[in-house]
Design a protein around this nucleic acid. Structure first.
Length: 262
DNA sequence: ATGGTCGCCAAGCGA
């Protein structure tokens, strides 16, 4: 049975409840993974989501910051959450569907402004978070698994508007790309979005600070869909709904989609 | 090199 999955950094699920509902109506993904919910779990506005068929949820939340949730039309069991780098943040939740597929939803730390852990503690935490992800997937190799989320790194040259101009900008520095690559390797993760769309510029995030984000188009691909090799061949139809970035009072991220025939 | 905008909630932090 094929199922479609979406990942979206919503930047406050309570402020943008209406946008989440609109995406659910327009796209009806079977599984919708959200990041930066910025809400305790009990205050996620579930009534409307349930009415739209999303009757299952696994989530971690905290007041005002971070927060991850998987909303699903399909039955789903929680299979744990990790606190990598011991930050005490709600940045990971995992659920398992009845077909045995495990879904990991991540919100990797953004890492602050300066890409130097000696002067910016947040950058060190980001690298440590990725290292602990790597070690965890190395020790317990994932199978039949999908990993999605805002990984806050754009790894490829064509994942950013200017490779040269972003080499020293947090999200595209070589050390971050190296750390993300090691995490990907440790789990044998296949980049599904790039499997489906191998060529050309591809972005999922545009800063709020641009005066005209669409015209300037200074985007980055920070949001990812990965899968293990045992199911990667079942994936297809990846896409990014760029137009969602242009909705009224939008998130600064666009949702990323993939379908799996499983 | 700098500032630009958001959302949290009501000052400044995080992104």
């Amino acid at each position: 049975m094929p199922f479609t999955l979406a990942t979206w950094n919503i930047n406050s699920v309570r402020l943008r409840e209406g946008l989440v509902a609109r995406l659910m109506r327009e796209e009806t993904p079977d599984v919708l993974c959200l990041q930066e919910c910025k809400s305790p779990v009990e205050k996620i506005p579930m009534d409307q989501f349930q009415a739209l068929g999303y009757t299952h949820m696994v989530a971690r939340g905290q007041k005002g910051y971070n927060g991850v949730a998987i909303l699903s039309k399909l039955p789903m069991q929680e299979v744990g959450s990790q606190d990598f780098a011991a930050l005490g943040h709600a940045r990971h939740i995992a659920g398992q569907l009845e077909n045995g597929v495990t879904i990991h939803n991540f919100y990797v730390p953004a890492g602050g402004d300066k890409p130097d852990r000696a002067i910016n503690e947040k950058f060190g935490q980001k690298l440590d978070y990725l290292t602990e992800m790597r070690d965890w997937f190395h020790d317990d190799r994932p199978e039949k698994s999908i990993l999605v989320g805002d990984l806050n790194i754009a790894p490829r040259e064509d994942d950013v508007w200017s490779h040269k101009q972003l080499l020293k900008v947090v999200s595209h520095t070589p050390i971050e790309v190296e750390h993300l690559g090691q995490t990907q390797e440790a789990g044998n993760w296949v980049d599904i979005t790039r499997q489906d769309i191998p060529d050309g510029q591809l972005y999922s995030w545009w800063s709020y600070r641009a005066r005209d984000w669409d015209a300037a188009d200074k985007g980055r691909r920070l949001d990812h869909v990965w899968a293990t090799p045992d199911i990667s061949n079942a994936a297809h139809s990846s896409r990014i709904r760029r137009d969602v970035r242009g909705w009224e009072q939008p998130s600064d991220h666009a949702p990323v989609f993939a379908t799996f025939d499983l």
